[in-house]
């Protein structure tokens, strides 16, 4: 399943997509450690799989919470994407 967490408002689209099929088997759970805003959590989804998700509190303010990793210029690779061993995380902006 592709789970898109985030939102779209007048200023743009701010979604973090997690390909949960890729993270069912993940042993590292690196996403929990690498995000400076600690946005990730592991939860049991509706189909009883243990997968990564964005914490509920963060889903409505990703534009601001992710700002730290997205300077206006000179942006490097995002820690969550770099840290995920299964390449399961994508950002829409």
């Amino acid at each position: 399943m592709i789970a898109n967490y985030g939102y779209m408002d007048g200023s743009g689209e701010y979604y973090i997509s997690i390909d949960t099929d890729k993270c069912i088997e993940c042993a590292s759970r690196a996403c929990l450690q690498v995000c400076p805003s600690q946005l990730f959590e592991i939860m049991t989804d509706d189909y009883d799989d243990e997968v990564a998700a964005i914490k509920k509190d963060g889903r409505r303010s990703l534009k601001y919470l992710c700002a730290e990793c997205k300077p206006a210029t000179g942006r490097g690779e995002l820690p969550c994407q770099a840290g995920c061993p299964n390449d399961a995380i994508k950002h829409s902006w």
Partner: peptide, 15 residues
């Protein structure tokens, strides 16, 4: 009826 891909928007009142 199993979800393959989803998104939700409950941040912004538009839409």
């Amino acid at each position: 009826g199993k979800v393959l891909n989803f998104l939700m928007n409950d941040k912004c009142a538009a839409g």
